Amino acid sequence: MTKSTIDPIIEISNIRKSFGSVHVLNGISMAVKPGSVVCIIGPSGSGKSTLLRCINALVPIDAGTIRVGEFQVEKLHTEKQLVPLRHKVSMVFQQYNLFPHRTVLENIVMAPVKVLGQNRAEVEKRALELLGKVKLSGKEKAYPGQLSGGQQQRVAIARALAMQPQVILFDEVTAALDPEMVKEVLNVIRDLASEGMTCVLVTHEMRFAEEVADEVYFTDRGVIVEHGPPGQMFKNPKDERFREFLSKVL
């Protein structure tokens, strides 16, 4: 079965979200196939990060529907209802959000043990394997303050993977990093994508989006202006707003 014949793992239909009088999402629809990489690009303030937060119910939507696997996200309201969703969908933020007073290992094992109730010894074994995956073997006893920004972001990715998700959302994960650290984080995401992890990324790294994405969405003012395969999007953009955006960032 090819990706094109598989049902989407994420289906978003006509969602809307306002903060007070500011309309942030104005009828967004998209579908994400299992094992695919979707990159969302666009100017600052176009609703990209809010869209990601709506997918795993960090932000409730005002209208429309979001389905992730078997979960109808807008119908989940209590923490008990949300735990299985957060097991399926992990998120990595621009700011690493690591606990500074806990070691790297503790940061990774906390959620699987405390939220999912998994066996600590098994989770620690998995955490050490994940540190190898993100090329941080030997750093398990370090504290976040002893690591570079790129290393902290890779710990955050390992922490997300420790929940054994089916989908990972990446919210501008390289935006706060020095240029030389960007590459090491993108390499980890590239590896995850090549292994078949479903990834949805909000990113300003256009060349990376062109290289790894199966589908690229360009958003502006809370709507999807244009979307398609990266080859089509970057080499033959149809919408004037998108062409103008690319002229500024490429």
Rank of each mutant, 00 (worst) to 15 (best):
V89W: 08
P100C: 03
L82Q: 11
P84Y: 02
L98K: 00
V104Y: 00
Q81T: 09
A111F: 07
N107S: 13
T103R: 05
T103C: 02
R86P: 12
V104W: 04
Q94R: 09
N107R: 12
Y96F: 15
N97R: 01
V109N: 00
M110E: 15
V89Y: 03
M91P: 03
E106R: 00
N97I: 01
P84D: 05
P100L: 09
A111S: 12
N97W: 01
V109D: 01
E106L: 02
L85C: 09
K88D: 14
L85S: 08
L98P: 02
M110R: 00
Q95V: 04
V104N: 12
R102K: 15
L98E: 02
A111V: 08
V109G: 00
R102W: 02
F99H: 10
Q81P: 04
P84E: 06
P100A: 13
V109K: 08
Q81D: 12
T103M: 04
S90Y: 02
H87M: 14
V83E: 11
H87I: 06
V89T: 10
L85F: 04
R102A: 09
I108W: 00
S90W: 11
P100I: 05
L85K: 08
P100N: 13
Q81F: 03
V92H: 01
K88L: 14
Q95K: 12
V83M: 10
A111N: 04
T103N: 01
V109M: 06
H101D: 03
Q81E: 15
L85M: 05
F93Y: 09
Q94A: 08
V109Q: 02
M110D: 02
P84I: 07
L105R: 10
K88G: 04
L82M: 11
Q95Y: 11
F93W: 02
K88S: 13
S90N: 09
V104I: 13
V83S: 11
L82Y: 09
I108Q: 05
Q81G: 04
V92G: 10
L105C: 06
P84S: 02
P112V: 07
N97P: 06
K88I: 07
N107H: 11
H87E: 14
L85V: 08
P112C: 04
Q81S: 03
V104R: 06
R102Q: 11
Q81V: 10
F99N: 09
L82I: 09
V83R: 15
R102D: 01
N107E: 10
Q81L: 10
V83P: 08
K88C: 13
V89I: 11
H101W: 13
Q94D: 01
V92M: 08
S90F: 07
V89A: 13
F93M: 06
